[in-house]
């Protein structure tokens, strides 16, 4: 079967800054793929090239086997694109927004009316469809933002950080809907800097940092690369910078980064056994107030691959 999306060696430069650097990955039909990376990693720029908004300096994109550069209109018909920003007319109602974009996607009037009902239902906004978007909460706006992209039943849904600025309840609701859509066979590209979201929704993950996809695989594959390394989160009162220096010198510690004014994240081979050594190493740099040993996860993989954390 043709993959839902294939991109190869995508490059985008602004001036002499290479913002996207030879990015390539593929998404199989019905697969949910996550691009995980911190702010400024190049996720949005990559997506802009995938959906035909931005012409890559190098590289190619195929959506459902169609080259985006050669036949952008046909390729775009297969994509449901949800911009990172709320791309709605605030002075219009959700229904009016949906009608306008639906018409732009070429849906016939009658079909459009029923589809609008369906997608409003899908995102749980049936009762509020005739209210102005202006009056919505952040979560409702996000959900409407997604609804617009679903009108034309796209084969590939592209969500760019769909939960930014959303209350926890709405976030869960959004993730539920997205999972349901994937369950129905829709292919998905999901970008986020939230590890939990990508871990939950996506079967395969690309880790992107400073414009490069540094690793790509299932969560299991990525974590396996850590080779039995645990993630340890330390909290302490004192000089975190000095403490992190000392911790890095401990045998078995591969990374030690400051993640807050009183927190340090470590990658430690055989984390549990090394705890006493870690506490000793901190010494008079501060008083340790908490220690948490976490099963190897994407956050640990990210730290392992890039030497930095997802959220700064």
């Amino acid at each position: 079967m043709t993959p839902a999306l294939v991109c190869e060696r995508l490059v985008k430069r602004y001036g002499d800054k290479t913002v996207v650097d030879r990015v390539g990955f593929h998404i199989d039909e019905g697969e949910a793929y996550g691009l995980l990376g911190p702010n400024g990693a190049g996720k949005t720029t990559t997506i802009s090239m995938l959906v035909g908004l931005l012409r890559p300096d190098e590289g190619s994109v195929r959506v459902g086997g169609i080259d985006v550069d050669e036949d952008p209109v046909a390729a775009k018909r297969l994509i449901g694109y949800v911009p990172q920003e709320i791309a709605l007319y605030p002075e219009l109602t959700a229904r009016e927004n949906l009608r306008y974009f639906g018409r732009l996607y070429g849906l016939p009037r009658r079909e459009l009316t029923s589809r609008i009902g369906e997608v409003l239902d899908l995102v749980g906004l049936t009762g509020r469809g005739d209210d102005k978007v202006d009056t919505y909460s952040g979560g409702m706006k996000r959900r409407t933002n997604i609804a617009v992209a679903l009108l034309h039943r796209p084969r590939l849904l592209i969500l760019d950080e769909p939960t930014v600025g959303v209350d926890p309840q709405s976030r869960v609701a959004i993730l539920d809907r997205v999972e349901a859509l994937v369950g129905e066979g829709m292919s998905l590209l999901y970008t986020s800097h939230y590890m939990e979201e990508v871990e939950r929704v996506c079967t395969r993950v690309g880790i992107i940092d400073q414009g490069r996809v540094v690793a790509d695989g299932t969560k299991r594959e990525l974590v396996a690369e850590l080779g039995g390394t645990d993630r340890v989160e330390l909290t302490l009162d004192g000089d975190v910078t000095a403490a992190s220096e000392k911790l890095r010198a401990v045998e078995g510690v591969s990374e030690a980064v400051v993640t807050g004014s009183s927190s340090i994240r470590l990658l430690v081979a055989g984390g549990r056994h090394l705890l006493p050594a870690l506490l000793a190493a901190v010494g008079d740099a501060g008083a340790v107030t908490g220690v948490e040993v976490v099963e190897p996860d994407l956050e640990a993989a990210f730290l392992h691959l890039t030497g930095s954390t997802l959220r700064d």
């Binding site: 802009s48 959906v51 035909g52 908004l53 952008p72 209109v73 046909a74 775009k76 018909r77 994509i79 694109y81 911009p83 990172q84 920003e85 709320i86 791309a87 709605l88 007319y89 605030p90 974009f101 732009l104 996607y105 070429g106 617009v148």
Partner: peptide
């Protein structure tokens, strides 16, 4: 600024 232009440009119509 609203990104609605992006949405229009992402629709299956010429840019």
């Amino acid at each position: 600024q609203n990104s609605t232009l992006d949405r229009m440009r992402a629709a299956p119509v010429p840019l």
